[in-house]
Computed example of a mutant assay.
Amino acid sequence: MIAKLQIQLSPALYLRDPQTTELGQKIVNESIFLIDEIGFEAFTFKKLSKVISSTEASIYRYFENKHRLLVYLIAWYWNYIEYRITFETHNISDPEEKLKIAIRFITRKLNDDDNFPGISESVLQHIVINESDKTYLTKNVDEINKEGLFKGYKSLCMTISSYMKEINPDFEFANSLTSTCLEAAHQQIFFAQHLPRLSDLKNDKDLYERNFEFLTTLIFNSLRK
């Protein structure tokens, strides 16, 4: 089934756009579940080919390696978050309200979106929390960056930092604060779940709400100094 809506991503992320074919969508969606189940280190195209009842060669026609597939998944996630923020803030003029909506979207626990049936956003969020730093903590990060593979992440950062600059035009660290909070949005969840002494958040039903409160406090206190 072809998705009702599509997130536009850089062609440098793939060899063939997986959103345009049933097999490509299956590769993407099943890779999300497999990476979430076994972790990125254990994930291979050979294992994925067995899950989708296809061949490794068919996967390599879409992605040149598993790292490029991971970059694609994380890029899709951040582009999706920006799409939701842009949609929800379209008719809002108050920058503080827009910023709070943005913080809500980067910290909320996602449910699957029926508008994108080829992607499980809820499971993909687990991968962002657990694996996203592997997209840029690599020796060839500069080369990857020059290819424009982090364009979606940067675009989201620019969108949120623009709200900060509307609130306080004299604030010097809008980009730094935004990128820090984008990382903290999933790092604090990871710490609370696995390294609890590194976070004041508790791994309970209010975890995501408390993360929203933490980042809201951090951002607005910084902007009002």
Rank of each mutant, 00 (worst) to 15 (best):
T86W: 11
S132A: 15
L195V: 13
S120D: 04
L13I: 02
A192F: 05
S132P: 11
I101K: 00
S93L: 14
I52G: 06
F43C: 09
I74S: 01
L177V: 05
S162P: 06
N79S: 15
E82S: 11
F33Q: 10
A3F: 08
E41M: 08
I2A: 01
S10V: 07
R197Y: 13
S176P: 05
Y60V: 04
F212W: 10
S49P: 04
D142Q: 12
I160H: 03
I74K: 08
D133G: 12
W76C: 00
D200W: 10
I38E: 02
G39I: 10
E30G: 05
L218W: 03
N221C: 12
Q193W: 08
V51I: 12
A42S: 14
T44A: 03
D133T: 14
S155F: 00
N145K: 14
S93G: 10
S222D: 05
G118T: 10
K4V: 02
S10C: 09
I129Y: 07
E121L: 00
Q188F: 15
E121F: 00
I81E: 02
L215D: 02
W76R: 07
H186G: 06
S222W: 08
E88C: 09
Y208S: 01
L207Y: 05
E131W: 07
E56Q: 14
I127K: 03
K4A: 07
H67I: 08
K4N: 08
L218P: 00
I167W: 08
I103D: 10
E88Q: 15
T55K: 11
D200G: 11
D17Q: 08
E131P: 04
E131A: 03
E82L: 15
P95R: 06
W78R: 10
D94S: 11
I219P: 07
D112T: 04
F220K: 08
L73I: 02
E147G: 08
S176I: 14
H67C: 03
L15F: 07
Q188T: 12
Q8M: 06
E121S: 03
R61N: 01
S49H: 06
K205L: 14
E30K: 10
I74H: 04
I38H: 08
P11W: 06
N29G: 09
L15C: 03
A12L: 09
Y83C: 04
L48D: 07
F116W: 05
A3D: 14
Q25D: 00
L215P: 05
S179A: 13
S222E: 10
F190C: 10
D112E: 09
N130A: 15
A185G: 10
L9M: 07
G152C: 01
K26R: 13
K225Y: 14
E37P: 00
A174D: 02
T86R: 15
K202I: 13
I103P: 05
L223A: 09
M158E: 14
F40I: 03
F171C: 09
A102N: 04
Y80S: 02
E209M: 12
N140E: 12
W76I: 03
R61S: 08
D17I: 00
Y208G: 01
H126R: 15
